[in-house]
């Protein structure tokens, strides 16, 4: 049980924010229609909670970092702080 839960969490972690949000929307709509079996409803809720945490984490990653590309003489691309914004 714990394994499957971890597997589910790992699965959610690979989702993009957009996909996770879309799935969460689908789960909410299904549950709101009330046509889901009780067992399934609980399972969906758990999945929804995972998706929500994942989305929150994605939104929390909102940190601005502005770098400038620097081309060295031999064409290697590196970055340095842009000193902007």
């Amino acid at each position: 049980m714990a394994d499957t839960k971890n597997a589910a969490a790992a699965d959610v972690a690979t989702l993009s924010f957009e996909d996770a949000l879309r799935e969460l929307e689908g789960i909410v709509q299904d549950l709101e229609r009330g046509q889901v079996k009780l067992d399934e409803a609980i399972a969906r809720y758990e999945r929804g909670a995972l998706l929500k945490r994942h989305c929150e984490a994605k939104l929390a990653e909102a940190k601005a970092k502005v770098e400038k590309i620097v081309l060295s003489a031999n064409g290697v691309v590196t970055t340095e702080n842009a000193g902007l914004g």
């Binding site: 949000l21 009330g34 889901v36 409803a41 809720y45 929150e56 939104l59």
Partner: peptide
């Protein structure tokens, strides 16, 4: 817009919980 997404997410979170509670009450 991050703020909108956050609001959306909170909304979904609330609806998710409400929907599950309602389903439990119904049951």
């Amino acid at each position: 817009v991050r703020a909108e997404l956050l609001a959306d997410l909170r909304d979904h979170d609330g609806r998710l919980l409400n929907a599950l509670n309602r389903r439990l009450r119904e049951a």
